[in-house]
Design a protein around this nucleic acid. Structure first.
Lengths: 223, 223
DNA sequence: ACCTGAACACCGTTCAAGT
DNA sequence: ACCTGAACACCGTTCAAGT
């Protein structure tokens, strides 16, 4: 206080790493992965593409930062619940819904699985695996298996969601898919053709959680 | 036989969808995903980029075709074994090793999970789930869970493999990663810090198969 | 029918020049 | 210290023109 206004005074609209990342998230959500370019991002921030490089090293770092911001929000919002089993389901649902809402997050998680975003999820799952009473070395195995499953399914689900225009709804999508599977070669794809009938009315989230329960049942059985 | 040689005679080096896809696989394996461009591919085939578009619609189709060729080979080579449990482990190992050898296959499987390559794997797993005696609707859930886990882990494993230069070997990589995890904030990452000690000597394939066994134990327990 | 290669409309990234 | 925007070295894709 008491200092006179000078060049050091922050302008409202000054560029910063945070503002850039926020704008990138908006662009990714609105236009999809291909909509994020340094030119489009710069024009949204009313500057030139070169200015962004003062704050961020390259596009890879920008994507990691955007993913990390979204995932940090997700894990912070997972509700506290009674049992480790419930907690793991809560984390799973959180990640699933986040990737469903921001499909580019899924692609990023699988492209750079050693970065902080993945670690945030791993940490939360790990604590609950510990709480489950899993012993020493098996904790790592169990947490890794759960993490891979959760991220894997979420990505596949999000990719399916983008298969058709948003106007095509879920039921139509499943009907189309079911019809396509039924037309597969009878000799090559007997199983796929048989389960094609189950596709209409399929509940992705329920199916996903059934898989979680399967892994948790396996963990319990292996103890 | 007996026809005179004409324009319809096939030149040895004539372009074809098959030759293009084979060259694309070579390029992807040698140079990685960013090494495949229509220009580099065309020059390898001693033609111009435009020529390729006579045989293939676009880059997406080229990637799907390349992935499909590799995965078809993989599933064809899975050995016949005694039990469904063994068979599922065999498929899992096949996919794991394929993605480890061709990391771009993993990226492609998660980018387009509804295409034939994924379906080929799903079909093989499904048949074994059926052989396991899993009932009706649960077959779909079990096969999907296994598929997601197998593809998910394989992609993460392959991404880790590309983290550093090929010169950096596995042991060094794990040591570096372990050291990095130990430096994480003690309050934010207690679990990750604790399991960091288990990282050196970690056997990815063994850990992966332990996860498969976990899911199979869950399937057995849920029956 | 199939191939050629220049051209179009883009990219990510760099960097001299400004403030 | 931070921003500007032209320039560099690329992309995927198209298409008139050739054989």
């Amino acid at each position: 206080m008491g200092t006179t206004k000078r060049g050091s005074e922050r302008r409202e609209d000054a560029l910063s790493r945070e503002r850039i990342v926020d704008a990138a998230i908006e662009l990714l959500d609105e236009e999809g992965e291909s909509g994020l370019t340094f030119r489009s991002l710069a024009s949204r921030l009313a500057t030139g593409p070169g200015a962004l490089y003062w704050h961020i090293a390259n596009k890879g770092e920008l994507l990691v930062a955007a993913t990390d911001a979204v995932i940090a929000r997700t894990v912070a919002q997972v509700p506290a619940v009674a049992t480790p089993h419930e907690a793991i389901r809560g984390i799973a649902v959180g990640v699933f819904e986040t990737i469903d809402a921001h499909p580019w997050v899924g692609a990023q998680l699988s492209r750079a699985p050693w970065e902080t975003p993945t670690l945030r999820i791993f940490e939360r799952i790990g604590r609950q695996v510990q709480a489950l009473g899993v012993s020493g070395r098996a904790q790592f195995t169990s947490a890794s298996a759960l993490l891979s499953y959760i991220v894997g399914v979420s990505i596949q689900n999000a990719a399916n969601g983008r298969l058709f225009e948003p106007s095509v709804d879920r039921a139509d999508f499943l009907d189309t898919m079911s019809a396509r599977w039924k037309q597969l070669d009878a000799h090559e794809y007997p199983f796929t053709r048989k389960v094609a009938a189950q596709l209409p009315g399929h509940d992705d989230l329920a199916e996903f959680l059934a898989g979680i329960d399967l892994i948790l049942a396996g963990i319990a059985a292996s103890r």
